[in-house]
Amino acid sequence: MGGHLNINHLMFLGQGALWTIGLSVIALIGGGIVGFVIALARISPLKSVRIASAVYVQLIQGTPLLVILFLGYFGLAAIGLKVSPLAAAGASLTLYVAAYLGEIWRGCIQSVPKPQWEAAEGLALSRTQRMMKVILPQAIRIATPPTVGFMVQIVKNTSLASVVGFVELMRSGQIVNNSLFEPFAIYAIIAVIYFAMCYPLSLFSQRLERRMGRGRSNLAPA
């Protein structure tokens, strides 16, 4: 116990911050892939697929991420499936992010103007062609600002992985605090590091939103 905050502690926090970024990237890619499938399933022509994906979204969005993490780490361990903290955190965040990104992206796909869908159908494009060549390229443009905005949520939510013992920024802060016991100073530093990671993303998302608004007004009929 005792001692002062020194360069080694800060290096340790820096390492934790790198893991926060790593876990965020895992969650974004994993959640993005599953979320894309969810978004397509939500507007599927098959009613059973639509209902199943809607139930998935409702269940995940009605459960706290913390409980999903506990279920993935302690829950699976208790029934005999031992998983590492990284695997549990990565999988839980993937399931969680997928439900939210899936809903965001479904909204973006559906907000592509109706005449575009009809024109594509009128040109005798198949369902896949219509999606790949007409709707998705436009939906991606609409989806970029909210997706960047949601990345802020992902970075912040990785802090919960600390409770299953994954050493990211929050957990490394707790470890440093265990040896120094200066909680307020250490958590303030942690908050500053999170802010430094999230605020640029927030600003970028806002700028994208404004830029898109401009593009839209250009497209509007005079």
């Binding site: 912040k156 939510n157 303030a188 999170y194 999230c198 605020y199």
Partner: peptide, 15 residues
Amino acid sequence: VETIRNTPLLVQIFL
């Protein structure tokens, strides 16, 4: 508003 929205709740609670 910006500080709170760009830091995790867990950190805020501990602070």
